[in-house]
Amino acid sequence: MLNLLNMINIIYNDVPTPYSCYFQDSATPNQEGILELHDNIMFYLFIILGLVSWMLFNIVRTYTKNPMAYKYIKHGQTIEILWTILPAVILLIIAFPSFILLYLCDEVISPAMTIKAIGYQWYWKYEYSDFINDNGETIEFESYVIPDDLLEEGQLRLLDTDTSIMVPVDTHIRFVVTAADVIHDFCIPSLGIKVDANPGRLNQVSALIQREGVFYGQCSELCGINHCAMPIKVEAVSLPKFLEWLNDQ
């Protein structure tokens, strides 16, 4: 049975697709939680939407002698209490799981590596300062978008970059996000990351990538004329491969 399951090769969706109306596939527990919360809320949201539409439709269709639309009503204590308390309770039920998730996603307890992402007009610069060579130099590189006329077959327009962030899988990673000129936003949907990059401020956010793959993101704060052309590309590889890459730098 397990062999059979392994034979099914799942293709994960880690890029935006035309006319898509759902999220990209998750690669971190954070994004898993966000999807779960979204699906749960949407379930109850559609029940409420259905109920309200059904009542409205019925009232419009048979206005007279309709128990829901008593046309001489001026004051109804019971119904007023109901339509105040009930939505409040529903909002509370939504709020609690939402806050739990929010604060869980905020925690950066024991990261194994730190990657700095610095937004510039209009590219990203990454620094791996946990690794410093004997000359005191650290790994830092810039990541530019591949222009349309240089795109190769299979590359994604306005998503592929010349250099990408390499990260090991199953490793707790801390991203320290900042900017050098204007506000940018570091966002990778598959990892459940979206954090503003403010000049003069360091924001941290964590990610635990659970599968290998290439994940794409874009700057998500209007930052000027080439806001569209500063994508983020993350390559998640196994730890030995990551160390190999590290040695090449």
Partner: peptide, 16 residues
């Protein structure tokens, strides 16, 4: 892999 851990003086997202 080794990096700076959690510091109780700076539990926030803002690490400036």
């Amino acid at each position: 892999l080794h990096t700076v851990g959690f510091d109780a003086r700076f539990p926030q997202q803002n690490q400036t």
